[in-house]
């Protein structure tokens, strides 16, 4: 209960602070964000877009971790954990894509421009889609778990190319791309103290939200399977 209240308060604070606090040219008060030339009010997306894309990747890592664990121990609970994590990853992936696309319309002029990072998130969306297509094609529980675990492990091998290599060697619009003069990861680029605090709080809040949803998700999945099995027996 305390955990839920804490999470609720944290996310509420992050949303209000992230959207509500003004952006001014020369911040004097503690609640004012600095103005980033060329971004202006659009800069606030960092508090919501980055955590969702971060969780897309984290959920994928978790899914692969439990897939490999399943392949080693053949414990069906690990499959449920991997599957639930993939489901959540898909939700966050769609959120990251949509928030990014809407933002890009105002900042870059079009919804979609095949920037390397946009390509990457699109590929991850496809991987998740393929994983669910594969799962729905197989009836047998053991076989489904094994094959989807193998597929997500193979897909995992390609993810570093998308997330870490391609955006850095190809030209793009995101910070940290090959031709970006500011260089360095997104967090360090002209973000001052209070912005960083809000950013990390938001990251923490979203991650906790994911952990909570994942916990409920896999337990309810296991219960559902159990009920379906007992219904079949009767």
């Amino acid at each position: 209960m305390v955990k839920k209240i804490f999470l609720y308060v944290l996310l509420a604070v992050v949303s209000i602070v992230g959207i509500g606090f003004p952006i001014v040219k020369n911040p004097v008060n503690w609640y004012e964000y600095p103005l980033i030339p060329g971004l202006e009010e659009n800069a606030k997306i960092i508090f919501f877009h980055v955590p969702t894309s971060w969780l897309t990747v984290i959920a994928f890592f978790m899914s692969t971790y439990f897939s490999i664990k399943y392949l080693r121990k053949k414990n069906i609970i690990d499959d449920a954990k991997a599957y639930t994590s993939a489901q959540l990853g898909m939700i966050f992936c769609i959120l990251a894509t949509v928030t990014g696309a809407v933002w890009a319309k105002f900042a870059w002029g079009s919804f979609w421009s095949w920037d390397p990072r946009q390509t990457s998130i699109f590929a991850i969306l496809l991987i998740y889609g393929a994983l669910f297509a594969l799962r729905s094609a197989i009836e047998d529980e053991q076989k489904r778990a094994t094959l989807s675990a193998v597929y997500s492990s193979i897909a995992f091998v390609t993810v570093p190319f998308f997330i870490f290599i391609m955006p850095r060697i190809m030209k793009g619009l995101h910070p940290g791309s090959a031709d970006d003069s500011t260089a360095g990861p997104l967090v360090n680029f002209k973000m001052n103290g209070n912005m960083q605090v809000v950013f990390y709080l938001s990251l923490l809040g979203f991650t906790l939200l994911y952990a909570w949803m994942w916990d409920i998700g896999y337990r309810s999945y296991l219960l559902k399977e159990k009920i379906e099995k007992s219904e079949k027996k009767d």
Partner: peptide, 20 residues
């Protein structure tokens, strides 16, 4: 082949892997 030889599934599964 283990998933019941579903022909349409093949490009769906291969594309994300071959994309990079």
């Amino acid at each position: 082949s283990k998933a019941g030889s579903k022909g349409t599934l093949y490009p769906v599964l291969s594309f994300p892997i071959l994309l990079p």
